[in-house]
């Protein structure tokens, strides 16, 4: 697992209070990890903070799974 994936996983575990083993690449924040719409907004903010990037609202709407987040951040961070 990449460094980015590890950091994403840590944030997800922390914010959603889920078991680390549930945070797989294909896990959907809402369907699999019990997040609601407000949780996903906060998750995106936490990613922005951790990785020092800005995630515009239209991009945030496409981040539905752990893998989506990792791929977006791999593409948009140095």
């Amino acid at each position: 697992m990449s460094d980015i994936a590890e950091r994403v996983k840590k944030i997800v575990v922390e914010h959603l209070g889920v078991e680390p083993e549930k945070v797989t690449e294909n896990a959907s924040f809402i369907d699999d990890l019990g997040a609601d719409s407000l949780d996903t907004v906060e998750l995106v903010m936490a990613f922005e903070e951790e990785f020092g990037v800005e995630i515009p609202d239209d991009a945030a709407e496409t981040i539905l799974t752990v893998g989506d987040a990792v791929r977006f951040l791999e593409k948009n961070t140095e």
Binding site: L38, V41, E42, M45, E48, E49, E54
Partner: peptide
């Protein structure tokens, strides 16, 4: 403003 949590109000 972008760092104010969605849980701030509720």
């Amino acid at each position: 403003a972008r760092r104010v949590s969605p849980f701030f109000i509720p």
